[in-house]
Amino acid sequence: MHLILGHTQDACCADVLFRLRKRGLRARLVPAPLEPPGRLFWQLDSNGLTTRLTFDDGPAEEIESVFVRSTGWLDPNGWEPADHAYMQSETHAALLACLAGLPCPVINRASAALWYRPRNSFAGWLPLLRRCGLPAPEMVLTDDPEEARAFGRRLEAAGVPGVVCTSLTQHTAWLVGPADWDGLAAVQARTPVCLSEPHGPALAACVVGRRVIWNGRPGSSAAALEPRLLRLAAEAGLDFLEVAVAPVRRGTAVVLVEPLPQLEHFGPSARAGMVDSLIGLLTGKPNAVRVPQEAHA
């Protein structure tokens, strides 16, 4: 059985489920695999690791692949809040270990670092981007209003209007224009802000296994980044990774890293290519058990 951990509202889950079933393969979409009546058996001893997952009262089925899109949020109904929080932590921990030890293809088989910090800010990816030789836009983290304005002036002198203020904890960003500096300073009185140089039109790309799928035709400078994008995915331990590249003052830079790619960000042709490649990975030969490298994630 091919297992998809996620929701029907997620286009990626729906498309992969449809394609697996269209091939005549047994596939199942499960939002929270460890929630009753789901049952987990995970045993590590001198005989090695044994993992069994069942989703109803029947016997355990062999899992041929897992496509991971959610980490299994337990329904809080019927729980005291403190008990729910504890059980959510326990279930989350158990599922990570379960996925890490499965001998079949698991996409993405997350490291603990990624499992527990799925919304790592773009700033958090900078060390890995640099290690892979991938440029990023110039960025400033500061709670000093004068430092922020100086950054804006430097960009303006280079012909770039405004700066982009990006939340480090949410997927939100604002363009800071000439009228916004006082408002930004008010925010900076409470917390440092993350500012980056604005970029030109972004082109999304998705790494799926050893393939880079562009959402359109990449220019030569973007295409030249392909080997480094593959390295980025490999070093992050990810088989499925969305990025976006865009022109900045000093050339082409990576402006987005998203370990949970969204099909909606891509046109029909790229989407088809992504799902094709995913199906290929999920139905490929089983890998040896591969626990992600923590230090690289």
Binding site: R39, L40, F41, W42, Q43, L44, D45, S46, L49, S89, H92, A93, A94, L96, A97, C98, A100, G101, S111, A112, A113, W115, Y116, R117, V291, E294, A295, A297
Partner: peptide, 29 residues
């Protein structure tokens, strides 16, 4: 980043085995 494995003891047990440790027989179920 490296400390996140401590949030899942069974996951960390897999890393410990790979590092050369013997871990107690463990069941998560």
């Amino acid at each position: 980043g490296g400390g996140m494995s401590n949030n899942s003891k069974p996951y960390q047990a897999l890393l410990l085995v790979r590092a050369g440790f013997q871990v107690p027989p463990t069941l998560v179920t």
